[in-house]
C-alpha cells in the first residue's frame, strides 16, 4: 500500500496553493510515496524520552529599542509589485462570486 495516494497528493497541492496538472500529479505521487517511505525511517529511532530540537543553538528573544529607523520608501516597497495603484499593491479580487 502506498504511503500516500494520488488523491492525497492532489489535496496537498491545494493546501500548498499549487495548481498541479494531471501529468505532474502522475509523476509526483509515486515520487512522494517513495520519499515519504524513505524519510519514515526516523520512526525506527527510539526517542520517546528525547526532547525535540527546533534550533541548533539556544534561542533567546531579541529586542531592540522602540525607535524610528530608516526604512523602505513606498516607491521602493512597491518597486517589485506585479501591479500597484495609488501607492498600494493592486491585487486580484479576494472574494469569490456567489
Amino acid at each position: 500500500m502506498p504511503s500516500i495516494t494520488r488523491e492525497e497528493v492532489a489535496h496537498l497541492a491545494r493546501l500548498a496553493r499549487i495548481e498541479l496538472t494531471d501529468d505532474e500529479l502522475d509523476h509526483l505521487a509515486p515520487q512522494l510515496d517513495q520519499i515519504i517511505t524513505w524519510v519514515g525511517q526516523v520512526s525506527q529511532v527510539a526517542a520517546d524520552d528525547i526532547p525535540p530540537t527546533s534550533h541548533a543553538l539556544p534561542l533567546t528573544n531579541v529586542m531592540r529599542a522602540d525607535e524610528n529607523v530608516p526604512c523602505l520608501t513606498p516607491e521602493q516597497a512597491l518597486s517589485g509589485a506585479p501591479a500597484a495603484e495609488e501607492q498600494r499593491f493592486r491585487v486580484p479580487r479576494i472574494l469569490e462570486e456567489d
Binding site: 492525497e8 496537498l12 497541492a13 524519510v39 526517542a47
Partner: peptide
C-alpha cells in the same frame, strides 16, 4: 508538498516531531 504533508495534523508527531528528536540525538 513533502513539507506540507510532514506538518499536517495527524502526521506531525510521526514525521516533523520525530525528526526534531533525531536532531537532538
Amino acid at each position: 508538498m513533502l513539507g506540507t504533508h510532514a506538518l499536517s495534523s495527524g502526521y506531525y508527531d510521526a514525521y516533523y516531531g520525530q525528526a526534531q528528536k533525531v536532531r537532538t540525538l
